[in-house]
Design a protein around this nucleic acid. Sequence first.
DNA 1: GTCTATACGTGGATAGAC
DNA 2: GTCTATCCACGTATAGAC
Lengths: 213, 213
Amino acid sequence: MDDETKPKGQMSAEVRRELLMTAALEVMKREGVAAASTRAICEEAGMPHGAFHYCFGSKRELFAAILRNGLDVPLEKSWILLSPSTHPEDAFRILLRGYWDDVVADPRRELVLSELTNHALRDDALRGLPAWESGLYRERIAKHLSELAERTGSEVLIPHTDLAEMILSAILGATTSWLSHGEDETARRTLDHFAGVFARFIHPREATVAADL
Amino acid sequence: MDDETKPKGQMSAEVRRELLMTAALEVMKREGVAAASTRAICEEAGMPHGAFHYCFGSKRELFAAILRNGLDVPLEKSWILLSPSTHPEDAFRILLRGYWDDVVADPRRELVLSELTNHALRDDALRGLPAWESGLYRERIAKHLSELAERTGSEVLIPHTDLAEMILSAILGATTSWLSHGEDETARRTLDHFAGVFARFIHPREATVAADL
DNA sequence: GTCTATACGTGGATAGAC
DNA sequence: GTCTATCCACGTATAGAC
């Protein structure tokens, strides 16, 4: 039962940091980022309040750790679902629906993501993290677009990063809007519309060109 | 100079409420919603702290008043710019660029809008306001779409509210993404791409149909 | 390393003087 | 109506006992 060699309820600061981070996210989802005080987080983690400050130098460090860890892995899973034979028309629909499944599976998470991003943007020491994360996602999507185009022998009509940013914006916007109005069906329909739109940016390459191989 | 009949620095509670609301927005833009304490707001407005609680019963009431007042008037101005002869192709570009001009004219405002919405979503007494505002905007856009279609003798290929929601999502998403990465050119390009996309949902009606009139 | 106790500031809200 | 003084809960962070 005891996978630690330490005598009592002792555990490495490393483990404690993990516990505090997950506890923090739990509190944030339940009561909001503003309510996630160091006291509330420690209580959630079952630790005394004093534990906090020998795991993290300050609350800001905890925020930085959470943001750096990456909160969501948008789309990453769903790209894998695409088989080489998948039509671009269907590809984006599968992709956005996969994303939406993740959202409805844990809706509060999206609100936390927005709150955390806003929080970071207001803090000089954290302001860089949203930009970094945003760029990371865009690059990933752009890379997947290249692979998709190559696999299906198609070409993307605009720069890959442009389409990636559009996809990111559409996802983000539909989700944000849904947080406000709460209409599941509307969000689903909006994403489906966008899927159709994005597919039109993927154009099958001429057969004659393919023959060059 | 004195447009008040009251003897001293006296002013109606009505006026004070207005002053507090604008002061609150000022503080929020400068330091964030979280930093907008009743004390900070009163200081900004040049009032003593005690003034707050005979203008608003609670801080929540101030938030409700601000949210109900409507923070942004998205697109509303720009629709007017469209002349009857404007091609749908150009219409959306004019529209989204007009929106973006407003954003860059006062960038902090968008961050505040996001913060305020998140705040409201966490408060049982305020949760309804974002939904109400969201629905209002969608309706307005849908109405303008109808007018645009009628004026140009075109038809919209999907339900007007569907396209309205897409426009709203695209705007919201592009703005939110821009708040993170801060790249003005990227945002502008993204919105232009979306403008082109939306135009394809507007289809000129058959000349033969128009002849029916 | 671990945790208790505490320091110190700030928040929203109110009582009561003017 | 207007404002001062104050209450009390809660925030981050630290000092120091174990």
